[in-house]
Design a protein around this nucleic acid. Structure first.
Lengths: 232, 232
DNA sequence: CATGGTATCAAACAAGCGTTTGAATGGCCA
DNA sequence: TGGCCATTCAAACGCTTGTTTGATACCATG
């Protein structure tokens, strides 16, 4: 009930401290002692505020998941926006979040852990966060594909796009070891990858669907509406 | 005694038991007690044969890695084989190993863990197992692309192909939750995915992927026996 | 038989973990 | 002021973990 209550409450300090640690080390390798040390609260605080370690973890995941939703709202395009443009925007948003120069790197690490080795928090994550984006992308593809295209084929294409982007999140070490340093800097940053994956995907769609213009403008209209609501 | 000679040694039983457990639970969540219970050896065996738990883990990773190399040798095609054909074969091999109806599911789980959260065993894995395949795929692409194509672009395409396949290994839960059960069975098995990813990729490359004969079996692995060095 | 090295075993050890406890603290209202 | 409540704290508890120990069985060799 005071002004911001973020750095005041011990509860809040624990939550904010625990997030990055859980993301980096996973649930099991994270100790409540480390959390409490770094948050400068007493060892018993986790059990006092969150009942037990798992209670804290679930709350952290819930927060991270809310934070992602707030930070990356469903993008809105003007109705006359060409679908190729929307696709490129979508891919840019995806890659930006994955390689995260933005303010949310650890939330995605946590999410990736949940997807690979799901806990109780996984289902809500998929339904609330992943499925909406899955359907946005499907809608974009509907504009680029013949009407007759089967749903399953559209979904295969969605996974092909997401898979291309996710790879750089899953296996950054591999990329770093396989390509030279110079190429890494010049051709594997966010924008070069946006260019490649967009071109690659549009070319694939153009050949399988009806003939589409190959050239796609790679303009960068960052239409980020970043709302800031109360942390509740 | 003559059949395998593997079920005799306690050391061997520990190794074979530990593999799947490490793959499923990770290093930290696996207890030596569970391993020894399931292997029906004494609790002290891990320390007796492998010095400590990490010693056992490294040996397990080394074995898994060797097993993968043996099981999936570099495929050899007849020189006149069209590159599109090779690409489809390569993708089929990749997906088969990923979704593994074959005999090696847990080795890949272990590998995936290493890639995401690397330990000391990661570098060797990349150099010995991943890089060779990376270069095979690059060679195939060289046949499909103009001579003038930059190396970095070829590598981006390699990652686009691998990313598409890897997705079904990384996020099988997500796929299962997002698509209907009927579609899952009909369109997301190995062979439908081979078809989709091949077509998608070839279309992107500008080649006509249509009319390729499907159903080419993966070449049988060459049997190569290798005795491992004495425990020291 | 005696011997020495190898393998197996039950038992215990030491450390780290999550969690609990009970007292101390400090603000708020009657 | 005195009592109530939420919060903080140091300390300890109980359990699981990886690891070590010392005794015991096995077995080929002199």
């Amino acid at each position: 009930m005071s002004l911001d209550a973020t750095l005041q409450d011990a509860r809040e300090r624990v939550l904010q401290t625990a997030g990055p640690i859980f993301a980096e080390k996973g649930f099991r390798d994270t100790t409540v002692r480390e959390i409490c040390d770094r948050a400068q609260v007493n060892l018993a605080s986790v059990n006092y505020y969150f009942r037990d370690k798992e209670g804290l973890y679930l709350e952290v995941v819930r927060r991270a998941h809310q934070g992602l939703l707030k930070q990356v709202p469903t993008p809105l395009w003007a109705p006359e926006t060409p679908a190729e443009h929307k696709l490129t925007d979508f891919i840019r948003a995806l890659l930006t979040r994955m390689l995260g120069d933005a303010g949310a790197p650890w939330q995605h690490s946590l999410m990736l852990r949940e997807l690979l080795y799901p806990t109780h928090a996984c289902r809500a994550l998929v339904e609330d966060y992943i499925r909406p984006q899955f359907e946005v992308l499907q809608a974009i593809l509907s504009e680029l594909l013949p009407e007759s295209t089967a749903t399953a084929v559209r979904q295969q294409i969605v996974f092909s796009i997401v898979g291309q982007c996710l790879y750089y999140r899953v296996a950054p070490h591999v990329v770093r070891m396989l390509v030279g340093d110079a190429d890494l800097a010049n051709h594997f940053g966010v924008e070069p990858l946006v260019h490649h994956i967009s071109q690659f995907t549009l070319a694939a769609l153009g050949a399988s669907g009806q003939g589409l213009p190959a050239g796609v403008p790679i303009s960068a209209p960052k239409s980020r509406t970043r709302r800031h609501s109360s942390p509740n």
